[in-house]
Simulated scan of single mutants.
Amino acid sequence: MVSDKLIFYQNVLGSRRLSNFFWAVVTITGGIGFLLAGLSSYLGINLLVVSDTSSLQFIPQGITLIFYGIIGSLLSLYQWFMIVLNIGSGYNEFNKKTNIATIFRWGFLGKNRRIEFTCPLEDVKAIRAEIRDGINAKRKLYLRVKNKRDIPLTRIGEPMSLSDLENQAAELASFLSVPLEGI
């Protein structure tokens, strides 16, 4: 996060997070393992080095393993696709020189891959923090704009620490000279 007197800039982390890499590796490993175990039962040859599949019958165990292997591999391909495209990454820029607030994110392939929202700084009413603790914790910052809905400013996924959220919210509200709601 870079801030000087006229420009406030924040990078937003997308899907290239360590947790996404971890789960993509786990699902591809599991998917390929299930697929090889199912194919081993069909072919009668042990294709897995780490396990003995000679006792598996093709019907019903082998078919089930092949099904789960295909589903796991497809899920992993989707996760790798998201990581390669870095879905959700972008930046928030608040520029007092041009008097424009720009929220930019990368989306899926297609004509709407670039998701960009701009508005004059005068239209910014407040910075809103949403904090909900529990099993499904939610800690997000929103840009409250006149005559529009709240625009999310923070990344999706793992919630940020409460102190980071408060610091970012206070710094941004101070820069824009708008009230801070929700804290």
Rank of each mutant, 00 (worst) to 15 (best):
F117Y: 01
C119Q: 05
P120G: 03
L121F: 01
K125M: 11
A126K: 03
I127H: 01
E130L: 01
E130V: 02
I131S: 13
R132P: 03
R132N: 05
D133H: 04
G134V: 01
N136R: 06
N136Q: 08
K138N: 11
K138P: 04
R139I: 02
R139L: 01
K140T: 10
L141P: 00
L141Q: 01
L141T: 00
L141A: 02
Y142Q: 03
L143E: 02
K146V: 10
N147P: 08
K148Q: 15
R149T: 14
R149H: 13
D150C: 05
D150H: 01
D150K: 00
I151A: 03
P152H: 01
T154C: 07
R155T: 14
I156A: 13
E158N: 13
E158C: 08
P159K: 01
P159I: 06
S161D: 09
L162G: 10
S163D: 15
S163K: 14
E166S: 09
E166T: 11
N167G: 10
Q168K: 12
Q168H: 13
A169W: 10
A169F: 09
A170Q: 14
A170F: 10
A170D: 14
E171G: 15
E171P: 06
L172C: 07
L172I: 14
A173M: 11
A173L: 12
A173R: 11
F175I: 09
L176C: 14
L176Y: 07
L176D: 14
S177A: 14
S177H: 14
P179M: 07
L180N: 10
L180R: 11
L180T: 11
G182V: 07
G182H: 03
